[in-house]
Simulated assay, not measured.
Amino acid sequence: MRDARSYAYEGPPEIRARVRPGLDGGVPIGSAADACRWLEGRDRDERDEPFTYVVDLGGTLLLAPRRSEHVACAGGAPVLAAGEITFDGGAAVVAVTNQSTGYRPDPSCWPAVAAALDRAGLRRPGGFTDAFAFRRCAECGQLNLVKDAFPGCAVCDADLPDPPGEGGPDA
């Protein structure tokens, strides 16, 4: 993971301020058995939803309940990847995304996710089941999650910058 890009938290400072380093953090998943034990500890309704995940700088998958903030799951630290993950009830991942507005991971973080899942012995898809792009509006400064290839700001409707490598600056 030495060459992997890391992502610092860029979300609201008041959310980061609530994180208690050393006390908050997701559950490290080092094996399929770890994942199964953690899933068994969730209530039935919760198991049907995606969970919050991050891949820490050491390449370990950390899990937390869905409504947890990614920065809390990471204990406030930078990550290699972050998003939402859904299991089949056991040791198979059926959906995984890079949807984290706090860390804004690029879809190119998939190799870090794949490596963490492989290391834990979890069956997985061949890539993100849904990959998202994040762009900051140059007009109003709002962070936008780009969905359905809509290139406009959700707040002021201004055009969003092109992604890196496609003729525009990285926002």
Rank of each mutant, 00 (worst) to 15 (best):
I85C: 04
A171Y: 10
P50H: 01
A116T: 08
P65H: 12
L57G: 12
S108W: 13
R16G: 14
V54N: 09
Q99L: 15
G11C: 00
C137R: 03
G89Y: 07
L57A: 12
L117D: 05
A114L: 09
G11D: 00
P169K: 14
R42S: 05
E139L: 08
A8P: 01
D118M: 01
G83V: 05
R66W: 04
V96P: 01
L61G: 11
G165E: 09
V146A: 05
C73I: 06
L117F: 11
A95Y: 06
G167F: 09
A4Q: 11
L61C: 13
F128N: 02
V54M: 15
L143H: 00
G83M: 02
P163F: 13
G30S: 07
G59F: 09
P151G: 07
D56Q: 11
G165Q: 11
P50F: 00
K147E: 06
E139V: 12
R135N: 02
T101N: 11
G41M: 05
V79I: 15
P21Y: 11
A35D: 07
E40Q: 13
P65K: 14
A4G: 08
L80P: 02
A32K: 10
D159W: 04
L62H: 14
R119V: 00
G41C: 05
R2Q: 13
R47P: 01
G11R: 00
C73L: 06
T86E: 03
D48I: 01
A138W: 03
A116G: 11
A138E: 13
D148N: 05
D56N: 15
T97N: 03
A95I: 09
A120Y: 02
A32C: 10
A64Y: 03
T129V: 03
L143C: 00
Y103A: 04
D170W: 05
C73N: 14
L143D: 00
D170H: 07
D162R: 14
Y53N: 10
R16T: 03
R44V: 15
S31L: 07
G141R: 08
P111G: 15
S108G: 15
L57S: 07
A32H: 09
R119P: 00
A138F: 05
F87Y: 14
E10R: 11
L39H: 04
G121F: 00
A171K: 05
G75K: 03
D130Q: 02
D106L: 10
L23N: 04
V54H: 13
G89H: 08
V27M: 04
V96K: 03
I85R: 02
F150S: 02
R16Q: 12
V113C: 15
G165Y: 11
D106M: 03
F87C: 10
R5H: 13
A4N: 07
N98A: 06
P125R: 10
A77E: 12
E40P: 00
P21E: 13
V54P: 03
R18Y: 02
P78Y: 09
G25Y: 11
V54G: 13
A17C: 12
R123S: 12
V113G: 05
G58S: 11
D118R: 08
N144Q: 01
P161K: 06
D159P: 03
R44L: 14
I29H: 06
G75W: 02
L39N: 03
G127M: 08
P78H: 07
P105F: 14
R123L: 08
A154H: 00
F51Q: 08
D88S: 09
P13D: 11
R42I: 09
F134M: 05
Y103F: 15
